[in-house]
């Protein structure tokens, strides 16, 4: 493999690896409710506590077992999430709630810290060092209200707006109006020229890339078999073989062989072929004979 091919293969591999596979980096800290009141969520022990909601923004399942939650940037492994619990697999576009009662040993979905107004909640990857996402709780957040992230892009992938709102634990934080792509295009590109220009360019780009890549990868020699490869096989020899075969087997096989030889000698074979023809003449050519349908050992 020459250097050019190596570069191309490396580029394709790098492209593949850089694509966002579904992993913990797809999780976001989507909502935090620090100060509960009598109407707040009750945990498994009957206590009304604050909570943290994580949301899987990807289209694949993410296992958050082994990750950490913390409100202290100097202690990223403050509240570990169990790796033994099978329920830590979070489905696409699903959310999960952690109670912030301060007792991590109460179960998988309990943190070892209590979230206070003004603090920042961090989600840390299972390496214990990489901060995946964070959400800062406003210091003046009212009782029983939550700080939540909302998405405003069409596909609800980028949760870029933090708002104080009524809590919605475990449910999707819908942004403003969820208009469809068609509505958006109708508004932004009523005559369709922008989409047309972009789409035509992308179609050309995709196919030009294919053209370029294949021109680069397989620029080398034409492997079409040349007549010189048929050493010693001349039309005269082929005719002699045909005549011998005809004398031996009749005219049908010879027609097939002649066609094959003709294609080979005239360089009209399209694909790589083995150039081996195997003919097993049948003992009888009366294919419709009833005796051929009989059992060999009648019972």
């Amino acid at each position: 493999m020459d250097i050019r091919k190596k570069i191309i293969v490396a580029a394709v591999l790098a492209l593949s690896l850089s694509a966002g596979a579904q992993n913990v980096s797809d999780l976001i800290v989507s909502e935090v409710m620090p100060v509960p009141d009598s109407t707040s969520l009750i945990d498994g022990y009957g206590a009304k506590t604050g909570w943290i909601e994580l949301f899987n923004a990807s289209q694949g399942t993410v296992n958050f077992g082994g990750c950490f939650l913390t409100d202290d940037r100097s202690d990223l492994q403050k509240s570990p999430i169990s790796t033994l619990d099978r329920s830590t697999r979070l489905g696409p576009r699903q959310s999960v709630v952690f109670y912030t009662g301060g007792h991590n040993d109460n179960g998988t979905y309990y943190t070892s810290f209590i979230v206070r107004p003004g603090s920042t909640v961090y989600l840390v990857s299972n390496d214990g060092r990489t901060i995946v996402d964070s959400l800062q709780v406003p210091s003046d957040i009212p009782v029983s209200m939550s700080a939540a992230k909302f998405a405003h892009d069409n596909k609800a992938r980028i949760f870029d707006e933090i708002r104080v709102s009524s809590p919605t634990p475990g449910s999707y934080n819908a942004g403003g109006s969820r208009e469809t792509g068609a509505h958006r295009m109708g508004r932004e590109d009523p005559h369709g020229w922008i989409l047309t220009m972009v789409a035509v360019s992308v179609v050309f780009l995709a196919l030009m890339l294919l053209w370029w890549l294949f021109s680069m990868l397989f620029r080398k020699k034409d492997k079409t078999p040349k007549p010189s490869r048929a050493k010693g096989l001349t039309p005269e020899v082929a005719a002699a073989i045909s005549m011998a075969l005809e004398a031996e087997f009749g005219s049908e096989p010879v027609a097939a062989i002649s066609m094959a030889l003709h294609e080979f000698l005239n360089d009209t074979v399209h694909d790589n072929e083995s150039f081996i023809i195997t003919i097993n003449p049948s003992a009888t050519s009366q294919w419709a004979q009833k005796s051929l349908g009989f059992r060999r050992s009648p019972r």
Partner: peptide, 28 residues
């Protein structure tokens, strides 16, 4: 491989019809 581009050029029909459909009052 150069013939690939002809396959791209012919897709213009899709977007021509898209523009005309919009002009005829169809939703995007």
């Amino acid at each position: 491989p150069r013939l690939i581009l002809i396959g791209a050029a012919a897709q213009t029909g899709i977007f021509g019809a898209y523009l005309l459909s919009l002009a005829l009052g169809f939703a995007p």
